[in-house]
């Protein structure tokens, strides 16, 4: 099982970075080999070009970028999903992590 890279994305990459911490904690508990990081909408292209990304999770407040980003991810075959509002608000790291794993096809 190789290391998975999950990218979270919101307006300034601030509130998603909160969630990243919670997800990392959940990952340790679930013994998942994973790299999780947050970025801003305007930093999306740069992160995508400069590092390995296996899956993208959008904050619900930037759900309007979904279509545009999916287009950019199509060639690379990277799945993208919008984080559930409730899980986002409660900063439920475990649920969002599991959502990401489901998106990447289990494991």
């Amino acid at each position: 099982m190789s290391t998975k890279n999950i990218m979270l994305c919101c307006v300034a990459g601030m509130s998603t970075s909160l969630l990243v911490n919670k997800m990392k904690k959940a990952a340790t508990e679930l013994e998942k080999d994973v790299v999780i990081f947050a970025t801003s909408v305007s930093g999306f292209d740069q992160e995508l070009a400069s590092r390995q990304v296996d899956c993208v999770m959008l904050g619900p407040q930037v759900s309007y970028m979904e279509k545009d980003f999916k287009e950019k991810l199509k060639d690379k075959n990277i799945p993208l999903s919008v984080i559930n509002m409730q899980d986002y608000g409660m900063m439920n790291g475990e649920k969002v992590l599991l959502q990401a794993y489901e998106l990447m096809g289990g494991e």
């Binding site: 919101c10 601030m14 509130s15 909160l18 904050g59 619900p60 407040q61 509002m85 409730q86 986002y88 608000g89 409660m90 900063m91």
Partner: peptide
Amino acid sequence: LSIVPGIFNINEPVIYGYPIV
């Protein structure tokens, strides 16, 4: 959950968690 990020004017937990939306 929201008070510490709120001090730094980050309030997505309030908006989606309380929820206000």
